[in-house]
């Protein structure tokens, strides 16, 4: 084990290399979760749709994604689809997005179905179409209810982005292993990267809590 003094010194001196990895991790996470929210919303609506075909499409997608490891999915996107020449950043982002999308679809489905059916009836009785009532009445309430599990999924996505190191995307974890191998001081760099992830997650948790407080003004 490194001494605390050595750890602190390395932490303070290494920030220029880590900040580049940090920035990449933040970008991959935000891009992938943003796409995942849209994917999740679509498949949630497919799942609750009256159409059996759409139900099936959603079920198959969720089953395949949940039933296979994320690292396999990322590798398939990067190595399996080389003829499309997908850049590392997008291979990782799309892989993560498709992965998180399946979980977010279930989060949205649950929160949409948890809204009292009287809300849809009230909207319809005022002359709103199903789509309009869904957009104006149901989804805003469902999104609010989905926020805590969505925040959780975001944190999972943030940490899972470290798997992009295996397709040599120079994000946070990749920086730590590279620096560790270069200096033969692996433990120090692993502890440092753990601190980076922890601080990121704590900051993000704080932001989600603030958002929840603001949105719960009407509860």
């Amino acid at each position: 084990m490194p001494t605390f003094g050595h750890f602190l010194e390395t932490l303070l001196n290494s920030y220029p290399v880590f900040f580049e990895g940090l920035w990449l991790t933040i970008r991959v996470t935000f891009v992938s979760v943003l796409i995942a929210v849209f994917i999740g919303l679509f498949f949630a609506l497919f799942k609750i749709s009256q159409s059996k075909i759409l139900n099936w499409i959603a079920n198959i997608y969720i089953a395949v994604i949940r039933g296979t490891p994320l690292i396999v999915q990322i590798f398939i996107f990067y190595f399996g689809l080389t003829e499309f020449n997908i850049p590392k950043f997008w291979a990782a982002s799309i892989g993560l997005a498709l992965h998180n999308g399946a979980y977010i679809a279930e989060i949205f489905r649950g929160s949409i179905q948890s809204i009292d059916k009287g809300q849809m009836e009230a909207g319809r009785s005022l002359g709103m179409s199903h789509t309009l009532a869904m957009r104006r009445i149901i989804l805003p309430q469902a999104f609010r209810r989905a926020l805590p599990p969505l925040g959780n999924q975001f944190i999972i996505g943030l940490k899972d982005s470290s798997l992009a190191a295996f397709i040599a995307l120079p994000e946070l974890f990749s920086v730590a292993t590279t620096q560790g191998a270069r200096t033969f001081d692996e433990m120090t760099y692993l502890l440092i990267v753990a601190v980076y992830y922890l601080v990121l997650v704590l900051i993000f948790t704080l932001l989600v809590n603030l958002l929840e407080k603001r949105l719960s003004a009407s509860d």
Binding site: G118, Q119, E121, R124, P140, D219
Partner: peptide, 17 residues
């Protein structure tokens, strides 16, 4: 339905508005 309004037992107001 625009011509036929309805009032429900449990009000069904939109809580987010």
């Amino acid at each position: 339905r625009q011509r036929v309004g309805m009032v429900f037992q449990h009000f069904n107001l939109f809580p987010h508005k």
